[in-house]
């Protein structure tokens, strides 16, 4: 029995629709409780502050589509950031372009190392990236030390970058504009979307996620595509690292790692991307990301005490994951598939 392909049916059964509804619902509730939510200032601040998380979500999403996974991206982000800052200080360079170039190079190299271990030795990506995460981060702290660089010591390129924005307007609260961080994020979105949708490389990524062996037989160069994927993850993570330091004006090598992983994974999974690969959309990932950002930053506005925010975000993630997968399970049962309880 097939559902009629009407527009309503197609829309109703898409994961993205549910997400959008929940986002709207949440926004309405929050706006009611705290009118400050709907101000331009707040929204622009959200765009600015969320760009980092967004970049990492895109990165993780690409890895997941291919049927792989990469949990070393926080370590890559902070490594790229800290190494770049210390290098710039050491050789007395104050160029933002230099920062981006160096950080990207580091991110790409780290990503290539991940890819090498995963493809050459056919090792499970989860464990490999767990290992490299500690390799990169432990190595960073060991060989470069734990000294933070605060706003006074940072090359001014970063603080300048942090102030840059597009379309500035003057209001009574001061100058408001769309932060350049957000612009970079948008560029990354478009780039990712383009690669995935309009290049053979991108279709290859989806194909590998669908059936790796079939992809090989079909002629896709699976190894090369995987090298690209993990290098891309490293690249986006490195960009995030630079944005991060420009935003908080503080380079502490113990940052990022430890706090952001859950939120990124939650954003991507809630966005409807399957952990086993092959299914997911950029749109979905963005919606998931929006939901996580909204919840993360507005719990306090809704009156949740500071020490309980982690818990509530955790509840939301667990409930969201439950909802997503229960729907999936019911759908599969409806299609007559035999669903068996399992751990993976």
């Amino acid at each position: 029995m097939k559902r009629p392909k009407t527009f309503i049916n197609r829309v109703l059964h898409r994961h993205e629709t549910y997400l959008t509804l929940i986002i709207i619902l949440f926004s309405v509730v929050t706006a009611n409780v705290a009118p400050a939510f709907l101000t331009a200032g707040n929204i622009l601040s959200l765009l600015r502050g969320g760009a980092g998380l967004g970049l990492l979500s895109l990165a993780f999403f690409v890895a997941l589509i291919s049927g792989g996974i990469d949990i070393s991206f926080p370590a890559i982000a902070i490594s790229a950031q800290y190494i770049t800052v210390r290098t710039m200080l050491a050789i007395d360079v104050n160029s933002l372009v230099f920062a981006f170039v160096l950080a990207s190079a580091i991110g790409i190299v780290y990503g290539l190392i991940n890819a090498f271990l995963i493809t050459r030795f056919k090792l499970p990506a989860l464990i490999v990236t767990l290992g490299t995460s500690n390799l990169y981060h432990g190595g960073l702290l060991q060989f470069l030390g734990t000294e933070s660089v605060n706003v006074g010591g940072l090359p001014t390129a970063f603080s300048d970058f942090g102030r840059m924005s597009l379309f500035q307007i003057s209001t009574e609260q001061g100058t408001l504009g769309i932060s350049l961080f957000f612009v970079i994020f948008v560029i990354a979105i478009v780039l990712t979307w383009f690669i995935l949708r309009h290049t053979m490389l991108g279709r290859g990524i989806y194909a590998i996620g669908g059936d790796e062996e079939a992809a090989r037989r079909a002629g896709f160069n699976v190894s090369r595509i995987q090298y690209f994927i993990y290098a891309y993850v490293g690249f986006l993570s490195a960009i995030m690292g630079i944005i991060h330091v420009s935003m908080i004006q503080y380079a502490n090598p113990t940052n990022i790692v430890g706090t952001i992983l859950l939120r990124v994974i939650a954003a991507v999974i809630l966005g409807g991307t399957s952990i086993s690969g092959g299914r997911g959309t950029v749109t979905g990932t963005l919606l998931g990301f929006v939901l996580i950002v909204l919840i993360d930053r507005h719990l306090i506005m809704l009156g949740v005490p500071a020490e309980w925010t982690d818990f509530f975000v955790g509840i939301v993630i667990v409930l969201g994951v439950l909802a997503t997968h229960i729907r999936l399970r019911l759908e599969r049962k409806r299609l007559g598939e035999l669903v068996v309880e399992r751990a993976h």
Partner: peptide
Amino acid sequence: ASVPAIIATLGTNGLYYGL
């Protein structure tokens, strides 16, 4: 709910820790 263990325990990890 047929949630893969890695996602389920990642989520509950945050939950228990938050608690």
